[in-house]
Design a protein around this nucleic acid. Structure first.
Length: 558
RNA sequence: GUCUUGGUAGCUCAGCAGGAUAGAGCAAUGCCCUUCUAAGGCAUCGGUCGGGAGUUCGAAUCUCUCCCAAGACACCA
């Protein structure tokens, strides 16, 4: 049962419906000793023309089904019946296992575009964010009952490839290309931008080569294909480490190259196009700068391709929502995209959602491949896994699958570090933070899980006698947190924010470890032991499932 | 310059559809493994919630204004 809803319902009825249900606020007090739920009655006094205390006193005697109801400073403080509540929640979780918290099927399709690394560039820590947030949102959306289609919209097209082809032809080294294609391509790309600083006419060369690529020039196409294949091979290593490799589609930007013209024609037919300074634009509202559809030389641009993509996806997947997990810096781009779709007369523009996230900064500034400032994700993962291995070797040297565990812990640390904070905040890239396995970290939660699994080996599955139990505050705190998992799943979807789940898991792990340190779990009292172990089991189910939603594995021993 | 985010403990961040003494982690200091995994727990230290004004019974939370930082702003994506 939902306690909050029940309390609201009761108060609504007691006050004869004079206070709207949405105005009855049920809070969770910061300090659980004050109450399990609290209702501030201040706002009722204007309508009922009585003091909050008088109202609270009236309500106090009429609310039924709870352990205790108190009035303090105008708050109505409600205490749940501990044993009944625990029994109900623990039983529910253990029965449902990892399906606990699953929401009803919505019969709606969600397309999520995420990860989207750029071909011919290293898979940098910047792309980690999109990858990891997108993956979590996929899991969270499915948990909430949506059908999900995932798209890895590879950055495999655009003027940058013209620049790259030109740069490779100018300064490229075939042997180096064979040896380590990504590094070689990065080298010439950085070189191009250095040279272009001195000699802006190089940009013109880049555009020329991209135009050739768009016009299906055989030589350009051959190089482009070579770059792309080498990159994908390289990315696969990183995806394998992260445990992410199941996109429904890998259609990159290039896929849309022959799908842009119909959209341009439609824009033309709807009289939305305009020529300005030689380029073709769509003029939007006064507060948004016009969107460039075609360059002066006829070449396509980012918006052009995204426009083609959004219609293609609407047709193919009949999406009810399209999520774009793309960084903050592209906010304007998506505003323009939505606005154009709206101007074209389609009302699904509202279903286009830019799931923005903060930048990965280095020394307070944006990382940039162009300026050679970027850190390879693969290197970071390897470093973290190595450190995890050292920990294991030191703390539990007899474990037999150390490599596997080190990988799960190391990768978990990296992913959790990214997901634990609100996604829109910028992150200062700090390898020390990632390499920390104590406190608010992924390994802390994984460790907690391993502890629980070790305890559960003592579980005998005997029938509990609830009458004999004495509940302590540690147990009670955990149960209440476990119960919040349901709400967290919905909130994480509604806000498209995985950190809501990450924070709850930290809370749960913390409460568990407090209990672990203060309560003797395996004791002579078989009934009580079994009871606490059932709480442990419920906790382990929530931690495992919550971590799975975040894209992180747990292990039984570490 | 315009627009968008953000400014909470030394550091990284929670809290923000207003509510009871502002919370974690890290760092620092001191405790706790003959007992269930010390990647843990406990304690101490640490804050005029960027400045100012307003709205109200009540503001870290809402409004305005100023300061600071980052990002975006026509032929990159």
């Amino acid at each position: 049962m939902n306690y909050k809803d029940d309390i609201i319902e009761q108060i609504y009825n007691i006050l004869d419906g004079k206070i709207e249900k949405e105005n009855i606020i049920v809070e969770k007090p910061k300090d659980r000793k004050m109450a399990d739920y609290a209702i501030p009655c201040f706002s009722f006094s204007k309508i009922l023309r009585k003091s909050p205390i008088v109202i609270a006193e009236e309500l106090k005697d009429k609310i039924e089904g709870y352990e205790k109801v108190e009035v303090v400073n105008g708050y109505l403080n409600i205490f749940l019946k501990k044993k009944d509540t625990i029994k109900e929640i623990v039983k529910d979780i253990i029965e449902k296992k990892d399906s606990y918290g699953n929401k009803k099927t919505k019969n709606k399709n969600i397309v999520i575009e995420y990860s989207s690394p750029n071909i011919a560039k290293p898979f940098g820590v910047g792309h980690l964010r999109s990858t990891v947030i997108g993956e979590a949102l996929k899991n969270i959306s499915i948990k909430n009952g949506y059908n999900v289609i995932t798209i890895n919209y590879l950055g495999d097209y655009g003027t940058q490839f013209g620049k790259l082809i030109y740069a490779y032809l100018q300064w490229g080294n075939k042997d180096a290309m064979k040896e380590n294609p990504i590094d070689e391509l990065r080298r010439v790309y950085v070189k191009f931008h250095e040279e272009a600083e001195k000699n802006p006419s190089l940009d013109e060369e880049g555009r020329k080569w991209f135009k050739r690529l768009e016009d299906n020039d055989e030589y350009s196409l051959k190089l482009w294909t070579q770059f792309k294949e080498a990159s994908l091979k390289e990315f696969e290593k990183t995806y394998n480490l992260l445990g992410i490799n199941n996109f429904d589609s890998y259609t990159g930007e290039a896929y849309y190259k022959d799908k842009m013209q119909p959209v341009i024609d439609e824009l033309e037919a709807k009289n939305l196009l305009e020529i300005s300074e030689g380029a073709t634009i769509v003029r939007l509202d006064d507060n948004i700068v016009p969107a460039l559809i075609k360059r002066s030389d006829g070449g396509s641009l980012y918006v052009t391709r995204d426009l083609a993509a959004v219609f293609d996806r609407k047709n193919n997947y009949k999406f009810d929502k399209a999520l774009y997990v793309v960084g903050n810096e592209q906010t304007l781009h998506f505003e323009q995209l939505k606005k154009i779709v709206e101007k074209m007369g389609y009302d699904f523009y509202n279903d286009i959602c830019h799931i923005n996230f903060g930048l990965v900064l280095q020394n307070g500034k944006k990382m940039s491949t162009r300026q050679g400032r970027s850190v390879k994700l693969h290197d970071v993962l390897v470093e973290t896994i190595d450190l995890a291995y050292k920990y294991i070797d030191e703390k539990n040297p007899t474990l037999d699958n150390k490599d596997e565990i080190a990988q799960i812990v190391g990768v978990g640390a990296v992913i959790f570090n990214d997901l634990k904070n609100y996604r829109c905040n910028d992150i200062e890239f700090n390898i020390e933070d990632i390499l920390r396995f104590e406190g608010n970290t992924g390994p802390y939660i994984q460790y907690t899980y391993a502890r629980i699994m070790s305890l559960l080996e003592h579980k005998k599955n005997i029938k509990l006698d609830y009458e004999k139990l004495v509940i302590n505050e540690y147990e009670w705190n955990i149960i209440f947190k476990l119960y919040e998992f349901n709400d967290a799943i919905e909130a994480a979807y509604e806000n498209f924010d995985p950190s809501i789940i990450a924070k709850l898991l930290l809370d749960i792990a913390q409460d568990f470890n407090k209990m672990y340190a203060n309560v003797k779990i395996i004791s002579d009292d078989a009934n009580n032991t079994e009871f606490v172990l059932s709480i442990c089991e419920a906790t382990s189910i929530i931690i495992k499932e919550g971590m799975r939603l975040l894209g992180i594995k747990v292990i039984n021993k570490m």
